[in-house]
Design a protein around this nucleic acid. Structure first.
Lengths: 344, 344
DNA sequence: TTCTCTACTGTGAACGCTCACAGACAGCAG
DNA sequence: CTGCTGTCTGTGAGCGTTCACAGTAGAGAA
């Protein structure tokens, strides 16, 4: 075990040549052992592995990339208002999950933030120049110009959430928003609620649209009339939830439940209901979406829909690697889960 | 403007050779233009730049790295309980700030999470193999074995926050915790408070130690006795703040102020005080630390100490790049700011 | 024996860049 | 004219890999 990297300055690391000499074989054989080990005799493989251990050899990825044309790294690209993402705990789970899933394949993740137009340009150049093999894209209003650009350049790309208004041929992984919404509204109806208002998400995002669609479907299937006056728009912010609840109460004093398209908004709804003197869940049941920390922190704690963020990140990585490997783009929809708490 | 990367598959990008031919000069001249442009005639430089623009040339970093030995990338290394960091909005600001500061130098950031022992080993190998030029380290209990290991391998390293129990020769950037604590306690005393309890941070972290030290200093300078019974330990969690406040009330019913070493804990303190029927700030003033969103969200909103996270990230990058450039390790301490809100 | 097939191994040539060196040319002094 | 400096330019070598190819050895078939 003579890791020849003594304390102090940085030594030149051992090369494949050193390993070959140490193991008494040629560079080619070492290279074969490194890449799968096909057509290598067991004896040679063992000698090489021992030599690698002895020398502390680590492959020089630059040299490898130079010849293979692959970079063996992927970019995690975040466009748009980054504040929103960085404040979102789910986003953090996603970033962490992707990093770990990639690490399992020994692939580093490069964090790329395209805030300004300048950054956007630099990043596009960087990516299309082949410095990453693929891109994990997180973008709020999808159909982002950068996505189109990358797709046209033939860069493997997987989006988080269904991209809207973009050609079909882009991979994405998303939670089943519609089904989650269905579960929640069914749950509310099952509790005997009949006058169920909605505070929607932004309707220019697939999530917002789908969650509303799920609500309408369940109402239809239960034979409850769809009343547009108790469907009010929100933007996922707490304030918009508060305002939305006030509008709902004004429109329908007999309101007995609210389906809110995000937990953050649901917090606002709770505040407004409390102020109006309505008890939750006795008078009005409240269902959220996301299962964010806000859901447990709220009082009463929120019944909500959990999105499988750990699975989403794993799937994004899986689909991206498959696409880098030459497979066709794919869409993956993952099931959500109803988490029952105090608010319903 | 013939960017020869048509829609569809990925073309082989233009090389320095293509640019040289296009500009009517040699590879060497193009290379010189790319790297500072010394010893290049204005005419040649112009021709090269035009050719670069025309061909859409982007340097192949792998080829460059292969020969220079630099990777022109840095790692952002997170050890330890990652949950805590990813939940911490300040950490997110830090990550974002570092990414952007590096982007300005055209240096990609590689996100590295050393959770398990396995990951730790892989990452260490990756770094010491020279795949990054330096490391930005975020670690809660500093004096991390990985830090020592990297330092011994001679890898440029900048820690966020003062490392504890590690040799002197490691760079770090930190907020002036002690001075922040001093400001807060002075502020409390200035409001006529005399019986000031503390909920400390973890005392195995420099932050926890320094904030407590600041408290003691101001007490001493104001001639107020240090009473150990109203100094209770916390771990930055909300729950520990709540428990801490209860202990304080039990020890000192005449408590008229609490200095809490984090906003999250301060939220817990507010809850406990409310339950005990103490009004804030009338009966008891509460001072937090961090200026996290929790501070504004709390009711009453928290007076707190703001740490200059944007400056911290910039400084970390600056110091790291300097160190990569050959300069000696450096310590940077940045001033904090008292943010006055409703709780005092 | 000889030929073929399979399993394995070594070797040169790239990949795209930078770096050291050498050469060219101009200006100026001796 | 020669020599020297300084600015500018081109050229070959080489960074550490992988890949294609050639070659060897042994097993089995003809």
């Amino acid at each position: 075990m003579t890791m020849n990297n003594g304390a102090g300055g940085r030594r030149r690391p051992p090369t494949i040549h050193d390993v070959a000499r140490e193991a008494g074989v040629s560079r080619g054989t070492v290279s074969r052992v490194l890449n799968g080990g096909h057509y290598v005799s067991p004896a040679a493989a063992e000698a090489v592995n021992a030599a690698i251990r002895r020398t502390g050899y680590v492959v020089n990825r630059h040299a490898r990339s130079l010849i293979t044309g692959r970079s063996d790294s992927v970019g995690f690209l975040l466009t748009e208002p980054q504040e929103r993402f960085f404040e979102d705990p789910n986003f953090n789970v996603l970033l962490r999950g992707c990093t770990q899933a990639l690490a399992a394949h020994d692939i580093p993740l490069l964090l790329m933030l395209a805030g300004t137009e300048d950054e956007r340009r630099r990043i596009t150049r960087y990516i299309t120049a082949g410095h990453v093999d693929g891109v994990l894209l997180v973008s709020s209003h999808s159909g982002d110009p950068i996505a189109t650009e990358l797709r046209e350049a033939g860069v493997p790309l997987v989006a988080c959430g269904k991209p809207i208004g973009i050609g079909s041929k882009v991979s994405y992984v998303a939670a089943d928003d519609r089904d989650g919404a269905r579960d929640m509204v069914r749950h509310l109806l099952a509790q005997g609620r009949r006058r169920v208002g909605v505070v929607t998400g932004p309707l220019d995002t697939p999530g917002g649209v789908e969650r509303l669609a799920g609500y309408r479907e369940v109402l239809a299937e239960a034979g409850v009339d769809y009343d547009e006056s108790i469907v009010v728009p929100g933007d996922y912010s707490r304030a918009s939830g508060e305002a939305g609840a006030e509008r709902l109460l004004a429109q329908a004093p007999d309101l007995d439940a609210v389906f809110v398209a995000s937990d953050l908004m649901a917090q606002g709804v709770l505040t407004a209901l409390h102020r109006a003197g309505r008890r939750v869940p006795e008078d009005v049941a409240v269902g959220g979406f996301d299962d964010s920390p806000a859901a447990t922190a709220a009082s009463p704690s929120l019944t909500t829909i959990r999105q499988p963020w750990d699975r989403i990140s794993n799937e994004m990585v899986r689909v991206l690697l498959a696409q880098i490997g030459g497979e066709d783009p794919a869409a993956v929809i993952l099931p959500t889960e109803l988490v029952k708490r105090e608010s319903t």
